[in-house]
Design a protein around this nucleic acid. Sequence first.
DNA 1: TATGAATGAGAATTCATTCAT
DNA 2: CATGAATGAATTCTCATTCAT
Lengths: 197, 197, 197, 197
Amino acid sequence: MARTTGSEGSRTEEAIRTAAVELIAAHGFEAMTMRQLADRVGVQPGSLYRYFPSKGQLLVELLVEHLEFLVSRWDSEQPEDADPRVRLRAFVDFHVRSHTLRRREAFVANMELRSLAPGDYRRVVALRRNYENLLTAILSDGIAAGCFRLPDARVATFAVLAMLTGVGSWYRDAGRLGKRELIEIYTQMVMQCVGAQ
Amino acid sequence: MARTTGSEGSRTEEAIRTAAVELIAAHGFEAMTMRQLADRVGVQPGSLYRYFPSKGQLLVELLVEHLEFLVSRWDSEQPEDADPRVRLRAFVDFHVRSHTLRRREAFVANMELRSLAPGDYRRVVALRRNYENLLTAILSDGIAAGCFRLPDARVATFAVLAMLTGVGSWYRDAGRLGKRELIEIYTQMVMQCVGAQ
Amino acid sequence: MARTTGSEGSRTEEAIRTAAVELIAAHGFEAMTMRQLADRVGVQPGSLYRYFPSKGQLLVELLVEHLEFLVSRWDSEQPEDADPRVRLRAFVDFHVRSHTLRRREAFVANMELRSLAPGDYRRVVALRRNYENLLTAILSDGIAAGCFRLPDARVATFAVLAMLTGVGSWYRDAGRLGKRELIEIYTQMVMQCVGAQ
Amino acid sequence: MARTTGSEGSRTEEAIRTAAVELIAAHGFEAMTMRQLADRVGVQPGSLYRYFPSKGQLLVELLVEHLEFLVSRWDSEQPEDADPRVRLRAFVDFHVRSHTLRRREAFVANMELRSLAPGDYRRVVALRRNYENLLTAILSDGIAAGCFRLPDARVATFAVLAMLTGVGSWYRDAGRLGKRELIEIYTQMVMQCVGAQ
DNA sequence: TATGAATGAGAATTCATTCAT
DNA sequence: CATGAATGAATTCTCATTCAT
């Protein structure tokens, strides 16, 4: 549900989303209870159902929202018809940024696919595939253009995504590395990984 | 009825372990119920408790067993005092092999840390760190020896491990790629990634 | 269905207390099941947990409530600074009355101490000691004043309390003896017992 | 395996009885588990069933044994055709002795009647009544002979028994009072209580 | 005799969800 | 909009008991 007027409602909905992402990231979807969630938001459990028809649907909305955000954001951010190397650099930058900025959303989107009902699973996996395909396209173009040296574009997609996504599970803003440094390190590793010339 | 004949003690325990890994890999630890597990093993739910004192302890034992297996196996398999490049190749080979052979165990060990009780969590994370350190050592040695070009050994450890471990989430024995091919692809990507000379 | 109409919150809690005391008095705390209790109250077992966080805590609250009732009631009922003999008569009257009126509560409070968790046990025993001390004070005063002939005030406390409390295990309102008669009988025996002059 | 040679059997049975009385006295019959009992005896739970057909029957045997012991022992110990005052003194002495010596058995016999199945309950209550009647007879004789001043022999029976039996719940051999002293104190109180002339 | 493996019933408790107010 | 009271189904775990070996 989207909600239109009256500020309280949409504020509560946002609070639920935020709290849900935090709780799911911390304990896992199955381990989060609606009671915990309600407590954190400061409402009664029954009130959650004004905003989300079920616990499962709440998860779906979180994941869909995140994946659509990723794809549409990249869409508006990607460099125009550039060299695969430029596009890959931009992708690494984008991915690392969004996976540290929206760390918990990204984490949940990666971990909780299996908690979805079959129909929702297919829908969300399709969205994720869209995102993966963005990278596969870059890598394939680069291989075709002779500027990447990779044995298999699809496997490389999985490999690069896994490498980049992993950042969310250890990076902390308060840690040793600044975000700019982090992105540079990953950029160098990815460019070496794909054998960029 | 006592005893369903043919199912002797240690056999039952092994059956529980196997079934548990399958179920946890498929649905997640929280989502697996002891009833499901018992059904799959072919015993009554209560019988599980002869072998594992609690659902949580079952998870701990699964994870500890896997991580100890990894470390001790690598210990006996690693090449003797070799060039970092040789050692890294061996590590990739070893990791990909063990993460496709014991795919589900590996998956569970990577996904279910958060389902552990705090004390168990610390214990298991320490074991995992031991394993990570094996790779960090190789990378550091390579950097020091000038044969790897990497900005940060620790970040590279996370990156390489994430990349390699990810294989378990998509690779299937029956798929397009044979295991030898798979290992070669990953070896090439990793060697490029670390900037091996 | 939500709400069986007519059963509002505090009414339900009172119903649970009443039913619990009856069941525990009849079968013992360990033997009472939450299902039984819920059945008698007319709710689902889970609903009990809105009112009491656990079976054990329910017992604690029952015992504490009873013992606090006894002490505070005696406090407001005891005769003002009188002769030990007058005070003892009043105490016997009070104790027998409260142990026949609230027969089951008293019985439970006497029988189920051992079902308490250690911490709760200490708390409840302390409350009980407060009550015992009321009698010990009367007896000591009487001994000091020379109007009671007793070898040991503390042992006499136990003896008198045991004698009086025992009434709850056999006396029934519908039986041969009226409550006035009962109290007179016990008063005479206690006064003789302490050697009242 | 425990066993060696000889009449291990009856030794095991005795060990079960002893352990059972301890556990029941400490935690209550319902709270004692057959596993606990077996652990304490040093056998497997299943082995208990060689000696007692069920948990409930074990309780019955314990109670019956104790009550028969009491009656038969008093039978052989009671003073021959004496004055009610002499007989009462002897009874107090006997009761206090047996309720401190076999403290746990006595305690269990007093607390666990309600854990018996209906048929067993009637049987055990009948035995207990036999014992109570011994005291009622003494008191009635004393009243008739004019040497006791009591309003009701039956109520006095309950009162005196409650008073005396209560000793088991606080007296400890290692405590402040020796057993001789204890008996004297109780004798004096009881003699005063019944208004002995 | 005693064990070890198992059963099956039932225990306390949790939880997503509903709905009258 | 939100709550408070409740449901009903499921969950983990326990326990007396059985019985082949």
